[in-house]
Structure formats: C-alpha cells, structure tokens
Design a protein around this nucleic acid. Sequence first.
DNA 1: CCATGTACCTGAAGGC
DNA 2: TGCCTTCAGGTACATG
Length: 269
Amino acid sequence: MPELPEVETVVRELKSLIIGKEILSITPLWLKSFDQKSKTKITGQNVEKISRQGKYIIMHLTGSYLIVHLRMTGQMLFKNDNTKVVDPHIRVLIQFTDDTALHFKDTRKFGRIYHVDHPESVLQKVGIDALDPNLKEEWFVSALKKSRMNIKALLLSQRLLSGIGNIYADESLFRSGIHPGSIAARIPGNSMISLFNNIRDVLTSAVENMGSTISDYRDSYGNKGNNQNFLKVYQRNGKPCEKCGRPILKVRMAGRGTHFCNKCQKIYS
DNA sequence: CCATGTACCTGAAGGC
DNA sequence: TGCCTTCAGGTACATG
C-alpha cells in the first residue's frame, strides 16, 4: 500500500509521538513479521531519532535500529491505552514504559519489522530517496540515459530512486506525457527533466495531503489520507483524461496494473 | 542486463 | 447463497 508520501506521513507523526520513549518490550504475534537480526536487548533502549529512506521507516534506538517496511497493508498505529490487543491483524506489539504502544497491523503479513545493528544490512540495495534535497536533475537524466529498462519498471525498482510505487509512478508519467512502456534511454532529455520535476511535485503534494488511501492505508492515528481525491490516472480507467477527454486505459505492465492516456503520453521505444 | 512468473498472504468484489 | 477467479499502495527470487 504505502509509498513515499504515506510513509513520510507516518514518520512525521511518529516523530511527535514516540521520540524519547523507552521501550518496555516488543512482542511478535506473527513470527515472520519480526526479523530479529541484532543481539542487543531492546528493553531499556530509547527511541532517539526517526528517519526514512524510500518506503522504509528507520527508528534509531540507543544501541540498535528498528526498521519497518509496511509493504501492502502495514500500519503503525499509536495507542495511548496500552491495555489489550483486540484487532486480530496486529502482528507486532511495541510497548513503551509509559503505558503507550505501537501496534503493527498488517492484514496480508507482507510487512516486516527488522531489528538490526546497522541500517545498511537492510537498506543496502535501496536507491537514494526520491525527495532527497541533494538530488540533481542532471544526475537523473544521465542515469536514465544508461538504462534500457521500461520506464515504469525502472521507477518501481527502487534501485535508482526509492519511494515511488504504483500510484505515483503512473501519476508522474502522466504529468510528464511519457507512456509507461517507453524505454528509459529513448526518452527525450527535456521529458526526462520534466519527469524528474513531476516525480518531486507529485510526491510533495501527496505528502501535503497526508498520502493516498485506496483501501488499507491509515496514518498512526488511524486516519485516512486525502490525496486519493487528486489522482489523475490511477484507478481512473474508463474515465475521461483531464487533458484530452479520451478514456484512461489500464494494462498490465511490469506485473502491475498501469494507468495512462494513450494520446497524451508518448511512447519512446 | 532485462522481462516474466511465482511466492508470500488476506479479503473484497464480480461472474456464474 | 455459494463457489471460483481476479485483483490489490510491494518486493525477493528463479528462470529464460
């Protein structure tokens, strides 16, 4: 479910909710959801800092790290009343010494919480964050020129940039007039620059709108996002393109449902 | 290098 | 009311 804007929304909330808290215990309710790679004891460690790389939430503890990936249906829900777990989809319970807690809810069980000594052990293959302020369009252009990949697959790969998923890949390509089946290196330079800027704009405004809720996404308070109301192609198949009025198409590409306008988005192959 | 399929899971929705 | 198929904000891994 969650892509960069949804994860960023959760990170911002968690910063205000749990920085400084001391961990009492962490309890896996579904074993695979918690990947214990560190030998350090979690009990007694404090949450000192929270950051994000792509779709990963990085909780910096006193002597180790908790790294969370929400995958399709994960939610990090903050609970003031650390009483009992009623929701059957809670997979990991993180309790703090002040009787508050985080409930990691994950219906489909794809998500993970890793406990590691070094973030690199999880983030090794993850590309630079798509909203990293140091990113330069010249770098993006030269990287695209080296790739023979289909542009949609490249954006989804997390290798070059991290944080873009199926919604924001389709939205960014639509706004840039690039057909998702285009070969990366064949896209004209000015369109590559347009894509770079549209990726950043689309993600930034989605963060301002607290992310997109299609079905499962919720922030740490359990609230839905608002950005689903501003999408131009994602799940708008059959509806008129905002630019030309022709119906938005949906096909399967890179293994995912892919939405685009066949007239407004040019294919470079 | 790149594309495709499968696996991991649950639940909602649609067809018959 | 079933029963069956397909699909879903993701990613890792195996196979051509």
